[in-house]
Design a protein around this nucleic acid. Structure first.
Lengths: 167, 167
DNA sequence: CGATCATATTTCGAAATCGTAATATCTGGC
DNA sequence: GCCAGATATTACGATTTCGAAATATGATCG
């Protein structure tokens, strides 16, 4: 059975993972660590729950990840003045430098891919991604009858999505 | 920085993972286990190294995965008569039944997504996936000079790709 | 044939991830 | 202000994954 969407996307994801891991390893971080640093460069300081949603790990996994990064003095945790339950994670100076290199790496990769596709292909790609979002979000039929479900609930956020935390 | 390819694909992959995990959990298996069973249904019996490439794990990870599945009598290992170094993994009867249910699940998901996109979008999607393959495959310049590299070597196989093992 | 190199798999200890159960703070009635 | 429920994070033990080294067979070449 050849799946026209699932198989290619699984394959591509793995290719991307291997490729980037290769590069980030040279910088001394895993891909998750790299992703986190890069995210913080654009959007930090950010509360942990936000990072958790961005990376898609369990909260307890994030604790470990952050402990390690903090141990290496790449990030640091501070209490969130606006919410005593949470901590804000920010980059240290060396974390910033590293984040910058990671970001450049990722941008290069993205650019290389974009170079190989035209705007129309990109648009088709986007539509397929949206269709996946639609299907995963919408629960189709509970066996019989009731319950219209779950449409607005906990979606998976894009790395770039972000609530304005503020003001 | 919003990445037009990396971010959506990361997000979609996570959505797919969560969605399918939800479903396969009901069947009592992880997504990797499900993937493996489903693959075996179509292409088994298969040697371990092939499964390893399909799932994209380290060999030692596969050993553990297979140990667990074998312990539950869903698959079994037999020596490969054509190659004394390898083992062939095949489905047991109950493994087959489970694999069948998994396959149906995945096919339904695929169908639901396909319903939301036209052929043109699908084509664009395909071209982007290919572009990713191209970029990850081709090692661009070692700092100076030598070594033209790596083009034909170990690519990441599609779940559906398969050498004819045969004859 | 025998040496050497490549391939297939497992073993084993270390590290990452997870699920669940604390702990602490916030929020909205009352 | 106080209680109940929601949110944010961590602690901790269990499971999974990993990397490196070990084992065993196959392939090549002299």
């Amino acid at each position: 059975m050849t799946l026209r969407i699932l198989s290619p996307i699984h394959k591509a994801t793995r290719q991307i993972g291997l490729h980037l891991a290769d590069k980030t390893t040279e910088l001394g971080v895993s891909t998750d660590e790299a992703h986190l640093l890069s995210y913080l460069e654009s959007y930090g300081p950010a509360p942990i729950y936000e990072l958790q949603r961005v990376l898609g790990h369990r909260p307890s996994t994030l604790t470990g990840l952050l402990d390690r990064l903090e141990g290496r003095e790449l990030v640091l945790r501070e209490r969130n003045p606006e919410d005593g339950r949470s901590y804000l994670v920010s980059l240290t100076l060396s974390g910033s430098r590293l984040a910058h290199r990671v970001t450049r790496l990722v941008a290069q990769f993205e650019a290389a891919v974009l170079e190989g596709v035209d705007e129309r292909a990109l648009d088709g790609f986007r539509r397929v991604m949206e269709a996946i979002g639609g299907v995963t979000r919408i629960q189709v039929r509970p066996p019989r009858g009731r319950r219209a479900p779950t449409v607005g609930r906990g979606g998976v956020p894009d790395s770039a999505e972000r609530k304005v935390r503020t003001a």
